[in-house]
Each structure stands twice: as structure tokens, then as C-alpha cells.
């Protein structure tokens, strides 16, 4: 069993949940299990911030990640955090490496999704997810800070390093790995969610395709 598979099995054993092989074959939109996004979702869901007007999302990667993958994830986060479905968009890209999309949700919320894969090879992703509402704003970056923060910074003779450990049960795993393991674990607890995940997957693929169509035709696309 793989390193991550062992971790999943550890959670299954601890909480007495049966493994379901579909967890490894279903598109799970695993970022929804990232605590940052779960908490942003809750801030809206619980009316801590009320009447959302605007989402301002940005996600830059190095060249290994295709724009379509980043768009898929960020569109899903728009819908997850914005509590609506994308109904129209206008996209502009340059050289298939950078660009942005203005989206509108069925609840009237609009959002900007900035994407790019022009960071130097091996550089950690740079992300920002901000919600602007009639009552309140929320952001996964603090005020005046342009790049993601770490929990620990070290400055040693070996150079500088940062550490962000966010899950005690899954200590040692990276943030994306933790999301994946947690998503698989949640699926095993609730295998009936398979149809919802697959439907969302089909929907998101259509939204991503619409973004490239919008860029190509220089037109807003209604979904």
C-alpha cells in the first residue's frame, strides 16, 4: 500500500469506516476538504458574512499544471464558497499560460478567477480566495500580504525554509495530499455521494470548456 494509502487506511481503522474502492476512482473535488475552503464555506453558510457580492480568486502554479486543471478547481471553489452555480463567464487567456475569467453565479454573485502557470519550476502555488459581502469580507490571505503564509519559518546556515502543518492526524503530509486523503475518507463514510461528485465533474468540465470557447470567440458564454 502506498504512503497515502496507509494514511487513509489508518483513518478508516481508527474511525471504523469501511474502505470503498470508488473513493479512488471518483472525481472527488478534494479541495473542498481543505480546511481553508471548508471554513470559507462555513463563513458564508453560517451568515458570518452576509449577502455575498463578489469573489476574488487567484491561483498561480508552475508550468507542470495545465490551466484547465486550475480552472476546474477554482470554478468548483467559486460554486462551493459562493453557494451557487456558474451561469455565465467571459474568459481571456494569453498563450495558454495565463489569463482570467469573470464568472456569474445563479444567485447573482460575480467572481474573478485569475490563473497562470508561469511560476518558475518547483515554486509552490500562489493562491488567494477573497469573499466580499454586504456584511463583511473574508480572505485566506491576511490584509497587506501578497503570498501565502507559513506556520514556521527557519533561517539557518542551510538556507531559508517554511513549514505549514495543518492536520495533526495526517502530520507530515502536504496540504494537497491531506485534502486528497480527507476527501477519500469522507467518501468512504458516505459512498452515496458518488453521483453528486460525478455530476459536478461533468458540470465543471463543461464550464472549463466554455472558458476556452469564450476566449477563442471573444464572447461571454452562457451555461
Amino acid at each position: 500500500m502506498s504512503y497515502m494509502g496507509n494514511a487513509l487506511q489508518g483513518l478508516l481503522d481508527k474511525y471504523d469506516v469501511a474502505f470503498d474502492a470508488n473513493a479512488l476512482q471518483t472525481p472527488l473535488q478534494q479541495w473542498r476538504c481543505n480546511r481553508r475552503f471548508a471554513e470559507l464555506h462555513k463563513l458564508v453558510d453560517g451568515n458570518t458574512i452576509e449577502n455575498v457580492c463578489l469573489l476574488r480568486f487567484s491561483h498561480m502554479t508552475d508550468g507542470k499544471t495545465p490551466l484547465s486543471d486550475t480552472l476546474y478547481r477554482e470554478f468548483d471553489l467559486c460554486e462551493f464558497i459562493g453557494h451557487g452555480k456558474i451561469t455565465s463567464l467571459n474568459a481571456v487567456f494569453t498563450n495558454g499560460r495565463t489569463g482570467n475569467v469573470i464568472v456569474k453565479l445563479d444567485n447573482g454573485v460575480i467572481g474573478s478567477v485569475e490563473v497562470g502557470n508561469l511560476l518558475p519550476s518547483g515554486k509552490s502555488d500562489l493562491e488567494r480566495h477573497e469573499i466580499v459581502a454586504r456584511r463583511g469580507v473574508a480572505n485566506d490571505l491576511p490584509m497587506d500580504v501578497q503570498i501565502p503564509l507559513q506556520s514556521i519559518y527557519t533561517y539557518t546556515e542551510d538556507g531559508e525554509a517554511g513549514y505549514r502543518d495543518v492536520d495533526f492526524e495526517l502530520y507530515g503530509f502536504g496540504e494537497e495530499e491531506i485534502s486528497e486523503i480527507r476527501a477519500e475518507f469522507e467518501f468512504c463514510k458516505n459512498p452515496s455521494a458518488k453521483a453528486d461528485h460525478e455530476a459536478q465533474d461533468q458540470h465543471l468540465k463543461a464550464v472549463v470548456a466554455a472558458a476556452f470557447e469564450s476566449d477563442k470567440d471573444h464572447k461571454k458564454v452562457a451555461l
Partner: peptide, 12 residues
Amino acid sequence: DYVYAEVGPNIR
């Protein structure tokens, strides 16, 4: 060259 603009719900 070209612009596209979208307004959201007002805050105020």
C-alpha cells in the same frame, strides 16, 4: 483591444 465588464450586486 477589447473590454468585457460585469457588475455584481451592490454592497451599499
